[in-house]
């Protein structure tokens, strides 16, 4: 499919996309992820999650214990998506 229906020529669209991407990447230059001196929450999780939850896998401990409510929300999102598909593809029995 060609883009003959767009009012902007192709070059301007590509330039706009690159510009927005650069603007959104600009903050990444000033961020430091994972620096232990500033990451208080992360250090708490690493130190205490094994004893507090009993799981060796810290990722599972965070996903299912510390933030288990968000996992329920994400499971609901999957349920909603499947219900939407089932509703769209339903066949009418007369």
């Amino acid at each position: 499919m060609t883009d003959s229906t767009s009012i902007f020529p192709k070059k301007i669209v590509v330039l706009l996309v690159l510009l927005v991407t650069l603007i959104l990447l600009l903050p990444a230059a000033g961020l430091t992820f994972g620096d232990p001196s500033t990451a208080v929450t992360d250090q708490y999780y690493i130190q205490n999650s094994q004893v507090a939850t009993g799981a060796n896998n810290v990722v599972s401990a965070i996903v299912f214990d510390f933030r288990g409510f968000d996992t329920l929300g994400e499971a609901c999102v999957l349920f909603v998506a499947v219900l939407g598909v089932a509703m769209l593809f339903r066949r009418v029995r007369k």
């Binding site: 409510f69 929300g73 994400e74 999102v77 909603v80 219900l83 939407g84 509703m87 769209l88």
Partner: peptide, 23 residues
């Protein structure tokens, strides 16, 4: 804040699916 985003996702998907009920 992240819980807010999760509920925002639920609203978006459920709303879009409900809008398309009468095909």
């Amino acid at each position: 804040l992240f819980n807010f985003f999760v509920f925002l996702e639920i609203n978006t998907l459920a709303g879009a699916a409900l809008v398309s009920y009468h095909r």
